Structures are given as C-alpha cells and as structure tokens.
Computed example of a mutant assay.
Amino acid sequence: RGGGLMMLGGVDSFQAGGYDDTPLEDVLPVYLRTRRQEKSAAARYRLTREGKLEPWLRLRPNESEENQRVQHMPDFFTWNVVSEIKPGASELASLESPDGQQPGLVTHRFGKGRGVALMVGDFWRWSMRRQDPQTDDLAQSWRQIARWLTTDVPRRVEIDVEPPADPLAPFHLMITVRDPAFLPLDNARVELTVSEPDGGEITATAAPHPRQPGVYTLDYWCREDGGYRCRVDVVLPDGQTLDPVESGWTAQPSAREFARVVPDLEQLSSLAKASGGQMVAPDELDRFVAQLPTRKVPVTETRVEPLWHRPWLLLIALGCLCAEWGLRRWKGMP
C-alpha cells in the first residue's frame, strides 16, 4: 500500500525493545543481530556524503552553512547499536564516538513505502540551548522528515497524465481507483471535467482498461494552446462518491506545424499543379530564373466600370424608346 515507518532510538527500541525476528524488523533498513552494548561516551551526529544530497535533511541554503549547523549540534547520550544496514539501504547519517562509528540514520524502500531507522533516542537535545530562540531546527527537521515519509503515499484515486510524443496524438490519461483495502476496484464510474484555456469545460467518461484491473483510461485531444485543468470524480458501484482529484497539463497544438521539418514534396507538387504553378528543385533555380523573361505569365487585372457606360445598355434604352413610340403611333395614342 505504501506509507512510511520510522523507528527512533531508545532503551525500548530496536533490539533492546525485542523487535528482532518480528515483522517490524523486515520493514526496518537495518539488521538487529548484535548484542546489546553499553555506550561509554556520547556520540556526535554527522551527515554522510549521501545524506548531504538529500533535500529533506538540509536546513541551510548552502553547504558551508549546513556543515556549520551540523558542527553545532549537541552530543547525544541515548543511541542504539545495530549490526549492519540491509542491502539497498542508504546510510544518510552516522554516529561518531570514541568506540567507533556506526549508522545513525538509515533509509530504504520497502514495497511502495519507506522505512527509516534513527538510532538516536534523545534527539530533543538538539532543540535545547539554541543560539537563536526564533529558529528551531529540530521542529523544521521533523516537519521535513514527516513530509518526506508521506509524500508518495498512494491515494484511493490517482491520475497519471502521459503527454504524447507526437504533437498530432492525444494526451493519455490513466486513472487508478482502489477500494478501502487499497486493492484495484472495478465497476466504478469515472467522470472527468476538463477546463480548457478559453474557459470552457468538457465532460467525459473514462473507460476501464482491458488488461489492468482498477485502471481507467481516456485519450484527450487538445485544440488550443495553454493550460488544461482536470477534475476526476469517481462514483463507486454502491453510489458512494470519493473525494475528487485534480491534475493538469499544458499543450501546444500549434507546434504540429514544426513536427516535421522535412519538405513534403508530394504535397508541394499537388499544390503547384492545382494553382497552375510549377515546383522547382534547388538545383534548377538558375535555369528557372533565366527562363522568366520569355515565359508567358497570366496577368489578372481588376477593373471597375459604371454599368451606364456600357454600349449595349444604351442600345437597349434606345430600342425601348423606339418601341414605345411605334406602339403609340399604331394605336393612335398621342
């Protein structure tokens, strides 16, 4: 399902708490196979090279200030000893004491979630006797750790927007729906409401995936450049509605013109034939220019003339006048 598990050091943690050979040991990134050892001195908390690269462990904007911050951290007197870290785990901090160096903060991926082992039990000492009472590094560190542990936790409804490789193709939307046990859920009605850049909304229904249970798909064609916003509403078979999920993407359909920069000779040839022109290859340009003075080029000229200036209209008028005079004379009319 995902999520995160973090175990802190202390007298009732790790092997001292009897967690060896338990399901929790499988989730932890360290082995609990060593005998309990007495600590003869305090330990210093130091970030490893890999730990300095993790943004959720850094509290200062640059490396020099971060090193200075770690140097000012107090000594810790409650910490646990572990035998070794598991394969694939990352040691992000170490504990240095006169007895040697051992892992202090270890993480690894477990299933779809994360497991964290912090061997320090009196981490609260970090917040005591602060140089600046307005700055609480311990509180900020706990917030960042908690956010990192829960960021990638899957939800019951998730949407994945896959942009097309070809500008002429649609965006592929995949919606994953899970039941309360976080197993794939079929027979749900998945409706999407897409807000387009011009302010209009389009409603569509996603279709179940033919091979993946609990997955619903929809191909969406973008007509305008700009940002698109999508809201997903899921109605379960029993009529219950889950919390809507929103996502978005940007599209640029106008880039279709530049999708192919190679000249389309067939299209150009048909266009020239339809318009009475000629398609000229680059190596024939000189000969084409030399033939221009002797080529017959049709000239189209637009002329505007009053209708009353037409000779045939004057003849019609004179004919009507003569016809009228003849009829009057024939009938004896004045």
Rank of each mutant, 00 (worst) to 15 (best):
R1G: 10
G2N: 07
G3Y: 05
M7W: 04
M7I: 04
D12Y: 14
S13L: 03
Q15Y: 03
A16Q: 15
G17F: 05
G18C: 08
Y19I: 00
E25C: 06
D26S: 12
P29R: 03
K39S: 13
K39M: 11
R44T: 04
R46A: 03
G51T: 05
L53A: 15
P55V: 07
R58T: 06
R60T: 14
P61A: 07
H72I: 06
F77V: 13
F77E: 14
V82L: 10
E91C: 15
A93D: 06
E96T: 04
P98Y: 05
D99Y: 09
D99R: 06
G100N: 15
G100D: 13
Q101M: 14
V106N: 05
M119E: 05
M119Q: 09
V120A: 05
G121L: 03
W126Q: 11
Q131M: 08
Q131Y: 06
Q140W: 01
W148S: 06
T150A: 13
V153I: 11
R156D: 09
V157T: 14
V157R: 04
I159E: 10
I159N: 06
V161W: 02
E162R: 12
P163R: 00
D166E: 12
P167W: 01
L168Y: 10
L168K: 06
H172F: 01
H172Y: 00
I175T: 13
D179H: 01
D179T: 04
P180K: 01
A181L: 08
P184G: 08
L185Q: 13
A188T: 12
R189I: 05
V194E: 02
S195D: 12
E196H: 10
E196W: 02
P213G: 08
V215E: 15
Y216Q: 08
Y216A: 13
Y220T: 03
W221P: 01
E224C: 03
E224T: 10
D233G: 04
L236W: 12
L236D: 11
G239V: 06
Q240I: 01
T241L: 14
S254I: 07
R256G: 12
E257H: 08
R260T: 05
L265R: 06
L265D: 01
L268S: 11
S270N: 07
K273Y: 09
K273P: 00
Q278G: 00
Q278C: 09
M279P: 01
A281V: 07
E284W: 00
L285T: 08
D286T: 12
R287W: 02
L292I: 10
R295T: 15
V297I: 14
W308S: 11
H309G: 13
L315C: 09
I316E: 07
I316K: 00
A317F: 09
L321H: 02
A323Y: 13
W325P: 00
G326M: 08
K331W: 14
P334K: 08
